[in-house]
Design a protein around this nucleic acid. Structure first.
Lengths: 151, 151
DNA sequence: TGAAAACCTGACGTTGACGTCAGGGTCGGT
DNA sequence: ACCGACCCTGACGTCAACGTCAGGTTTTCA
């Protein structure tokens, strides 16, 4: 499938640098089950591009939505579910009913998340409008001051 | 100016309840200089409606923008500056140059904040688009499953 | 092959934003 | 004047999300 990707694995140091987080954070995420990098036979962690993307996703959920790591774990689990289902999509061993159930479940989780994001977006818009109003008032004050000094 | 407002002062308990935060939080905000309620001669805190609004604002900056209390303090100081200037606007003792300086300063702080909010909004929009894409894919999967079972 | 660089697992420390508790002061109604 | 409700100031506790350090292991590369 992925043809051009050299699939170079990174050590935890390089991975941390790439992802813009600390090594400790990467180990911590793994400890909480948010991330499961490969290991060498010697037990050293090896990170793929997908792992880095996952870290970026984690950070986004953290800083953008303000979710804590437990909540993020839930979101990631839901996303993993979807991937899992996609993978097993044509696997005959998975019953259609079961698949439907799983899909519905992850759809529900995503919908919930979407609602959260929407709410946050609306609140942000309100805040922005308020801020703009303040700013324009301050600008007016400044204009008046300038007119004053000019008059 | 404010005619209809009875200007009833609240004790810290009632204020906390109204604002939806703990008493400890109110004392903590005051300790950090975010809030400066009046006091009775005996030293008990008394909160005005403006104080409550300020708390709401603090919470908004916390949960919506993810600012820490130090950053919030900076924002609030900027806003207080504006109010101060407005109040002293026709006070002859304040020099025009000084006023311009102050106004410019708070304008800068607000502009910075606005940029932050904008950035966050854009990021949220991206995130939302991504989420919608995921959701529609999951929906498709579900539709296929239903078609499968129907066929 | 051998040493420097990178990494490992505990385990304790830190920071922000409060929670909680003790021991005492203040307020409002009677 | 008094009592119960409310409030005060320390001061220590807590929780998440890591930071940091020690002592040992694995990789890498000259």
């Amino acid at each position: 499938m992925t043809v051009g990707s050299e699939d170079r694995l990174l050590g935890i140091g390089a991975a941390a640098q790439q992802a813009g987080v600390s090594e400790r954070a990467l180990r911590y995420y793994q400890q909480l089950g948010l991330l499961t990098p490969m290991c060498t036979s010697g037990g050293l962690r090896r990170y793929t591009e997908a792992d880095l993307a996952r870290v970026a996703h984690i950070r986004e959920l953290q800083t953008l939505l303000g979710l804590n790591l437990d909540e993020i774990a839930a979101v990631l689990r839901a996303e993993d579910r979807v991937a899992e289902i996609k993978a097993a999509y044509h696997d005959h061993r998975t019953g259609a009913g079961e698949r439907r159930e799983l899909v519905r479940e992850s759809l529900a989780i995503h919908a919930t998340l979407r609602a959260q994001v929407q709410a946050k977006r609306a609140a942000l818009d309100d805040f922005l409008a308020d801020l703009d109003q303040r700013i324009s008032r301050i600008s007016d004050t400044l204009t008046e001051l300038d007119a004053d000094s000019a008059g």
